Simulated scan of single mutants.
Amino acid sequence: MKSAAIDPYAALQKLQGGERSRLTDAVAEALREAIVTLALEPGMMIDKQAVCERMGVSRFPVSAALAKLATAGLVEVLPQRGTRVKPIVIHDIRQHLFIRSALEVETVRGLSSTRSDATLEALAANLDKQREAVAKGLPHEFHPLDLAFHEILLDAIDLPRVKEIVATSRGALDRARQLLGTPERHIHTLEEHVRIFEAIAERDAEAAAHAMHRHLDEVIAELRRFASERPDLFEE
């Protein structure tokens, strides 16, 4: 986690003048990025004036942006106290992982009997890049490769609505993913991806389903371990 001495608003950039609605969207996107990347930590009270000064905007777009983020479940208004970054809710994480597990387990189960050589080649190439990112200690390169691995699987079954639902649930896990983005977790993720790939390559539907299930279960298990160390960032 970052040092308390670091300005949590440092990543916010000053905006140029523009229409009120566009300013609101720009402020909301900047604050969302700061929240998702944990520059603004779960449980932290948001200093509206600091945001205004940093981004060069009035209080209106900041207040409107925070209202949008509240609807998205990233911040919450505490009566007579102000607005804070919403703690990561373990129960919400479990629900989104349940959705992902239900859909992605069935994805690999079905794909094991229908996969094409092109899909296997795409997965193998992706895994090679994952290995390189892990070997070189490049976490910022590993994350998009992790996402791409799952997208290759979802694209292969050609069910756009399923992919859309998975993407929505995956987006809700962004903050949790940042907390677990350690070199050790990346090594384990790579190993889990390899097991999924090997089962699909061998047309072993049950092994593929089991490997995907274990892969997603590990996320909630590691989050619970992390929550025991930093309970201030979480709510049950």
Results as ranks from 00 to 15, higher is better:
Ala221Glu: 07
Val134Gln: 07
Ser116Lys: 09
Leu223Ile: 13
Arg109Lys: 12
Lys136Asn: 13
Thr168Cys: 02
Glu206Ala: 15
Ile200Asn: 10
Met212Cys: 12
Val194Asn: 03
Ala122Asn: 05
Val166Lys: 09
Glu151Val: 00
Gly171Ala: 12
Arg161Ala: 00
Leu120Lys: 10
Leu179Gly: 14
Ala122Trp: 00
Ile157Gly: 00
Glu104Leu: 06
Thr189Gln: 10
His213Leu: 04
Phe226Gly: 01
Gln178Val: 11
Phe142Val: 02
Ser101Arg: 13
Lys136Gln: 14
Ala167Arg: 14
Ala156Ile: 01
Ala211Phe: 05
Glu184Met: 04
Glu202His: 13
Leu120His: 07
Glu192Leu: 09
Leu223Tyr: 13
Val194Gln: 13
Asp204Lys: 12
Arg195Asp: 01
Phe197Tyr: 15
Val108Phe: 01
Leu153Gln: 06
Leu123Glu: 06
Ala172Phe: 07
Glu191Pro: 10
Gly171Cys: 04
Gln130Ser: 06
Ala133Met: 02
Thr182Tyr: 13
Ile200His: 08
Arg195Ser: 07
Phe197His: 15
Leu154Lys: 13
Ala118His: 11
Leu179Lys: 14
Ala156Trp: 04
Arg214Thr: 03
Leu173Val: 05
Val219His: 14
Asp174Trp: 08
Ser113Tyr: 09
Leu111Cys: 01
Glu206Cys: 06
Gly137His: 09
Glu198Ala: 12
Glu191Asn: 15
Ser116Gly: 06
His186Ala: 09
Arg203Cys: 06
His150Trp: 09
Leu190Trp: 03
Lys136Met: 11
Asp174Ser: 15
Gly137Val: 01
His186Met: 11
Pro160Ala: 03
Glu222Pro: 07
Arg109Gly: 06
Ala122Phe: 00
Ile200Ser: 08
Arg224His: 11
Phe149Gly: 04
Arg161Leu: 05
Gly137Pro: 08
Ile165Cys: 00
Ala176Asp: 08
Glu192Asn: 15
Arg177Thr: 02
Leu190Ser: 05
Leu147Lys: 14
Leu111Asp: 01
Val108Arg: 02
Val166Ser: 02
Arg161Lys: 04
Glu141Trp: 06
Thr189Tyr: 02
Ala199Asp: 09
Arg109Cys: 00
Asp128Asn: 15
Ala176Lys: 11
Leu179Arg: 14
Glu192Lys: 14
Phe142Ala: 03
Asp174Met: 07
Arg225Cys: 01
Ile200Leu: 09
Pro144Arg: 11
Glu218Ala: 14
Met212Ala: 13
His213Met: 03
Glu106Cys: 10
Glu141Tyr: 09
Val105Ala: 07
Leu216Pro: 02
Arg170Cys: 01
Ala125Val: 02
Lys136Gly: 05
Ile200Pro: 08
Val194Asp: 02
Asn126Gly: 10
Leu145Asp: 04
Arg214Ala: 07
Ile152Tyr: 08
Glu206Phe: 10
Asp158Pro: 00
Ala156Asp: 07
Asp217His: 14
Glu164Phe: 06
Thr114Asp: 03
Ala133Asn: 07
His150Lys: 12
Glu202Gly: 09
Glu192Thr: 09
Ala208Tyr: 08
Gly137Met: 03
Ala102His: 15
